[in-house]
């Protein structure tokens, strides 16, 4: 008797699922340590392509692209997180109001419109208002599509924090601002941090929209990699890919741990009803 949760074949399918998801990444990670200049032959373990990434002929180009990616992601994620936190407070702490439905739709709009459509529309918009495509246009586009990603975990967390905490603070002579700063914000923090991490990764990841609004000569890491891959996959790309993979894994792990810690502090101790 296996119980109602058991279905034969589901475990093998889960393993297949994981293999499909991880095999390409694992293969590239392994080949990034290939000592050979050819991508087909295995020339022994070596770190030469990692050295190449930082000192090779393309180091400056990729370095600049990485810098652009990183600073854009930092600014975009931070701005989007501030905007999303404010929005979440209005959506979840102000009771029902006119325009709430519309605001909700607006916040989620970037998730519903296909990326390629956003890319086209944004390019057309910047070109019409005469804003030269470049760093600034990438940044503006990124802030926009990062908002819903930052919003989701913040709103989820805020829903879990009962209004009574703020009321208790107000009852104990805290002003509205103090109740926010000393009580709500610390309780909301896990959500704010995961929101920021999510937005950061999303910004770092984006290729399609960036590719449309970047203009000539401006590159982020994904567009630089894409340009390079168009001429064939080279070993240094595999090294860069592995490094980026590592960064992503670190970020997700951080988000996962923060979330878990946040959940461990229950929103309502002593609640039985």
């Amino acid at each position: 008797m296996k119980g109602v949760r058991y279905y034969p074949g589901f475990l093998p399918l889960t393993i297949l699922c994981l293999v499909v998801l991880y095999a390409p990444l694992a293969v590239v990670a392994v080949y990034s340590f290939n000592g050979s200049a050819s991508i087909t032959e295995w020339g022994g373990f070596s770190l030469r392509w990692y050295t190449d990434v930082f000192t090779g002929p393309e180091a400056v180009r990729f370095g600049q692209a990485a810098w652009n990616s990183l600073t854009i992601a930092l600014i975009a994620a931070t701005t989007a997180t501030v905007i999303a936190t404010a929005a979440a407070l209005a959506m979840l702490r102000a009771g029902p109001f006119r325009g709430r439905q519309a605001s909700f739709a607006l916040i989620n709009l970037p998730l519903m419109v296909p990326e390629i459509v956003i890319a086209v529309a944004t390019l057309i918009f910047f070109s019409t208002i005469g804003l030269t495509t470049g760093y600034l246009t990438i940044l503006l586009a990124h802030i926009t599509f990062c908002i819903p990603f930052a919003y989701l975990p913040i709103a989820a967390r805020l829903e879990g924090v009962e209004g009574t905490y703020e009321q208790a603070a107000r009852d104990l002579y805290a002003t509205r601002a103090q109740a926010f700063r000393l009580i709500l914000l610390p309780l909301l923090m896990p959500g704010v941090i995961s929101g920021w991490l999510l937005a950061f990764i999303i910004s770092l990841d984006d290729f399609i929209i960036t590719n449309f609004v970047k203009g000539a000569g401006m590159e982020t890491l994904p567009t630089a990699i894409f340009g390079s891959v168009k001429q064939g996959i080279k070993p240094n790309i595999m090294a860069i890919s592995t490094l980026m993979l590592l960064v992503s894994v670190l970020f997700v792990t951080a988000a996962y741990l923060i979330n878990r810690k946040g959940r461990q502090a229950p929103a309502t101790p002593g609640k039985t009803t």
Partner: peptide
């Protein structure tokens, strides 16, 4: 008056102790 300007205090049903 705002709650923080009233010299009354409340014991909440589920206590609302600040968890942090």
């Amino acid at each position: 008056l705002e709650p923080n300007h009233r010299p009354v205090n409340t014991v909440f049903q589920n206590y609302a102790l600040f968890p942090h």
